[in-house]
Design a binder for these strands. Structure first.
Ligand SMILES: [Mn+2]
Ligand SMILES: [Mn+2]
Ligand SMILES: [Zn+2]
Ligand SMILES: [Zn+2]
Lengths: 135, 135
DNA sequence: ACTCTAAATGCAACATTGTTGCAAAACAAA
DNA sequence: TTTGTTTTGCAACAATGTTGCATTTAGAGT
């Protein structure tokens, strides 16, 4: 599904920056930092990017995958809705390229986590992302 | 062991702010945010607090337990050294009081995590901290 | 207790990010 | 194309991160 179709489905206006952000995150294997997007989308005001990320997050189209030292990384959500979010995976901060990758976790780990009496459980780690490992 | 003794043990100069930060974090059941410490230690310059947190982190006396929306929470380390860090626990952001608590995790969860080929694995979650639950 | 030197502090300065208000521009429906 | 609503761009301000440098302090030696 194209970014335009996705926006339409969510009753969101199809503006340039929303399409650009969705396109970029959909095509990227790794989560992208705010500053990276800022640079890539320099034709837009940073406030607009800020509000675009807020809106897309609110509607469950993207999520903040990682945050460290004031730098936030965003990734495309798959199968998330405004109500139900499925982020049962690990966010790997690559020690080589600095990118952030969403990684599936084992069923054993999932069931361990399911026993915790908490919400919004998030696992992060550091290591080499799949792109850097195979390179 | 007092904060002074701890600093001595690590060959760190016993300055007022280091003692104050260590005392505060040692006595606190929850991790404290930078802004909280900033307010509590307003007699010191914020740059000094910044560098104090860097130094104490570097020596393994404290660790950044949680970071969200640009707000960082620090907690006292127990059993960490400059080389070996033992942070195999969960950082719980309290939905009620906003505090951050370090929570021990089950052996099952530990062993699941041990199988991951990554370093610096960190789990965070949201829910009610023990103080708010018992209140 | 005094002196000296290395380390730590306070302060200025600048960068990045977060956040809001408001007028102008863009979008979607009619 | 007209119109009402939403989104954008810009100004403005706050919070935090970060560095350089002069001054002060801590700890060691005398
Ligand atoms: Mn993810
Ligand atoms: Mn901890
Ligand atoms: Zn990588
Ligand atoms: Zn609480």
């Amino acid at each position: 599904m194209t970014s335009e179709e996705t926006l339409e489905q969510f009753n969101l206006r199809k503006t340039k920056i929303r399409i650009a952000v969705l396109d970029s995150l959909s095509q990227s294997a790794v989560a992208q930092s705010y500053s990276t997007m800022q640079n890539a989308l320099h034709e837009f005001d940073r406030t607009t990017l800020y509000r675009t990320l807020l809106t897309l997050t609110e509607y469950g189209l993207i999520h903040k995958a990682y945050e460290e030292n004031g730098e936030s990384f965003y990734a495309r959500c798959f199968g998330c809705t405004e109500q139900v979010h499925n982020h049962e995976h690990l966010h790997l901060k690559c020690s080589s390229c600095g990118g952030v990758e969403c990684i599936e976790i084992s069923d054993q780990l999932k069931s361990s986590l399911a026993q915790l009496p908490f919400q919004e459980i998030n696992i992060s780690a550091k290591g080499d992302c799949s792109a850097c490992v195979s390179a």
